[in-house]
Computed example of a mutant assay.
Amino acid sequence: MGDFSTWLEHFESADTPVGELARLAAADPCWPRGPHRFHAYTEHLESGEAGAATLGALLDAWVRWASHTQAYESPRD
């Protein structure tokens, strides 16, 4: 499945919270491209004052991506 950001790109046209996150990531020139650590993405979103819905979409996307790649890192790490 590849890295998280590449996986997320597949959802840009989805009318879902994960799709909204994908569009936000695609439009953000500073979106993290690695390392693929949950904390890097949460820090990035929080630095832009992302709301709870965006952070929830990130958690949902991360768990879905990890289940496909089996590269699971606990979001609590």
Rank of each mutant, 00 (worst) to 15 (best):
D3H: 08
D3Q: 10
F4Q: 04
S5H: 09
T6R: 10
T6F: 06
T6L: 08
T6P: 03
W7C: 05
W7D: 02
W7K: 03
E9D: 14
E9T: 14
E9I: 06
E9L: 10
F11S: 13
F11E: 08
F11R: 15
F11L: 09
E12I: 10
E12W: 07
S13N: 12
S13I: 06
S13H: 14
A14T: 10
T16D: 12
P17R: 11
P17H: 07
P17L: 08
V18N: 00
V18Y: 02
E20G: 11
E20T: 14
E20P: 00
E20I: 10
L21M: 05
L21A: 03
L21H: 00
A22S: 12
R23L: 00
R23G: 12
R23V: 00
R23C: 02
A25F: 08
A26I: 00
A26L: 08
A26H: 05
A27W: 00
A27T: 02
A27R: 09
A27Y: 00
A27L: 01
P29M: 03
P29Q: 02
P29T: 06
C30V: 09
C30H: 15
C30D: 15
W31H: 09
W31A: 03
W31S: 00
W31T: 03
P32R: 02
R33W: 03
R33M: 07
G34R: 09
G34D: 03
G34C: 05
P35E: 05
P35T: 02
H36D: 14
R37A: 11
R37Q: 13
F38I: 05
F38H: 12
F38S: 04
H39T: 13
H39C: 08
A40T: 09
A40V: 13
T42N: 04
T42C: 04
T42M: 03
E43V: 08
E43K: 11
L45F: 07
E46L: 11
G48S: 10
G48Q: 15
G48R: 15
E49M: 11
E49H: 15
E49W: 10
E49I: 04
A50I: 03
A50W: 06
G51H: 11
A52W: 11
A52R: 14
A53W: 08
A53D: 12
L55N: 14
G56L: 04
G56S: 12
A57P: 12
L58R: 02
L59W: 09
L59Q: 13
L59T: 15
L59D: 13
A61Q: 08
A61S: 08
V63F: 05
V63M: 08
V63L: 13
V63E: 12
W65Q: 05
W65M: 06
S67L: 14
S67K: 15
S67C: 10
H68Y: 10
Q70S: 11
A71W: 10
Y72P: 01
Y72A: 11
Y72H: 13
Y72F: 13
E73A: 11
R76I: 12
R76M: 12
R76C: 12
R76H: 15
D77Q: 13
D77W: 11
